[in-house]
Simulated scan of single mutants.
Amino acid sequence: MEEIFKKYEKTIPRKHSISFSPKYKEEFRTFVNETLFIAIAEKTFEKLDWDIVYKDDCSIEAKRKEIGWVNERWTEIITASYKNGIVLVKSESLGSEMWDVGKNSKRVKLFIYAYQETLKTFDNQSLKKLENEVEKKNNWDDYIIPETLPQPTPAKVPNITLPIIGGVFLSLILGFIVAFLSIKGLYIIMLFEFLVATGIAFGMKYLIKLSNYTDFNKLQYLLATMIILTYLSNQYFQYEIILNTNNLERIGFWNFLQIRFTQGFMINKMNLGWIGWIISWILQLGLTAVFAYLKIVTVFTKYLIERVPIEVVDFTYYFLLKDKSEEEIRKELAKKGWSDIKNQNEVFEAVGGWQNATQLNRGK
């Protein structure tokens, strides 16, 4: 951050916010149009050392980074939106804090001050020049269509069989591990759900890559099945471990579950009854599903992007920006050696992957 803004930040009075997601917002007026506003706001964020994560025709977002003891983390997301000369600036806390100690108000007021100071560095002539540069950049007017593109590798036929088989084996392995640790009394709620989700995502990363299967709707069904199978097999493996460890007679898995329901769920020497088991299983499934879904989306998006060279993605995006039809773009790709329909589909999926990556980066 530039020194002038560091000094000003120290003088800003705090306005505290307390809520589940603390935030602060404020409006101001600017005389420039929306194109120039976005351009100057972008320069403002850069001067403040805030990471720009998204921008469109009338709004721009950035995240503020803070260096902690272990690693860097984003602390606030700042959004500036333009409408008819009025700019709404909002700062929202990231993470789990409920009291922002006035930090959001400082971010908003600092941005407004930094924006005004940045705007002062432009006269009418330089503003006009900046507007022309932005319009050329947004329209990709300087993009030079390459004579050649990196050539595609032979596309594998997508096959869901491998993810299904691999997913079943992975679920059973995770179910056994959770069962073993639960019997040993090492189960920690939220931590184990997070670890199970991480294990599922790690396995699915390679299964997706090996199978080249990218139908995300069906992968979601597979993910749900894997989570259910993991915790169902966990109960069965607990049943087997208890019987084998204690040399007990086989009473049947369903009888085992009935006994558990009868004895109730114990937590801190308090018996929550059969409802405790239901709640614990719902929490297991729900937490794992949330963690796993977020991780799978990231893994899936990264795979779509990595399959296709960035030069080919840029080439395709340029023609999309110029309102070319899908058929016309496929013909242009074919001229550059991307004639296989499967490879062309991968290109369009990669473009979508980059758009998804932008949305993920905006996540709170």
Score class of each variant (00 low, 15 high):
Ile4Met: 02
Pro13Gln: 14
Arg14Gln: 07
Phe20Arg: 08
Glu27Asp: 11
Thr30Gly: 08
Val32Trp: 03
Ala41Arg: 07
Glu42Val: 03
Glu42Trp: 05
Glu46Ile: 09
Asp49Met: 10
Ile52Cys: 04
Ile60Trp: 06
Ala62Glu: 00
Ala62Asp: 00
Arg64Asp: 06
Arg73Lys: 14
Leu88Val: 11
Met98Lys: 13
Met98Ser: 12
Met98Ala: 08
Val101Gly: 03
Lys103Glu: 11
Ser105His: 01
Ala114Arg: 02
Ala114Trp: 00
Tyr115Gly: 10
Thr118Tyr: 10
Lys120Ile: 10
Asp123Gly: 14
Asn124Ser: 14
Ser126Gly: 08
Ser126Tyr: 02
Lys137Asn: 05
Trp140Pro: 02
Ile144Ala: 05
Ile145Tyr: 02
Gln151Lys: 15
Pro152Phe: 06
Thr153Pro: 01
Lys156Gln: 07
Pro158Leu: 01
Asn159Ser: 09
Thr161Val: 15
Ile164His: 01
Ile165Lys: 10
Val168Pro: 01
Leu170His: 09
Leu172Met: 03
Val178Arg: 00
Leu181His: 06
Gly185Trp: 13
Leu186Tyr: 05
Leu191Asp: 04
Leu195Trp: 11
Leu195Tyr: 14
Ala197Trp: 00
Gly199Cys: 07
Phe202Cys: 03
Met204His: 02
Tyr206Gly: 11
Asn217Asp: 13
Gln220Leu: 04
Tyr231Gly: 04
Leu232Asn: 01
Phe237Cys: 11
Gln238Ser: 09
Glu240Thr: 15
Asn244Tyr: 01
Glu249Leu: 12
Arg250Leu: 13
Arg250His: 13
Ile251Leu: 12
Trp254Ala: 05
Gln258Met: 13
Phe265Thr: 05
Met266Tyr: 07
Met266Val: 06
Leu272Tyr: 10
Trp277Cys: 09
Ser280Cys: 07
Ala292His: 11
Val297Gln: 03
Thr298Leu: 12
Phe300Lys: 08
Leu304Val: 07
Ile305Glu: 08
Thr316Leu: 07
Lys322Val: 06
Lys324Pro: 03
Glu327Ala: 10
Lys331Trp: 11
Lys331His: 15
Trp338Asn: 06
Asp340Asn: 14
Asn343Gly: 09
Glu346Gln: 13
Glu346Cys: 11
Gly352Gln: 01
Leu360Phe: 02
Asn361Val: 05
Lys364Gly: 09
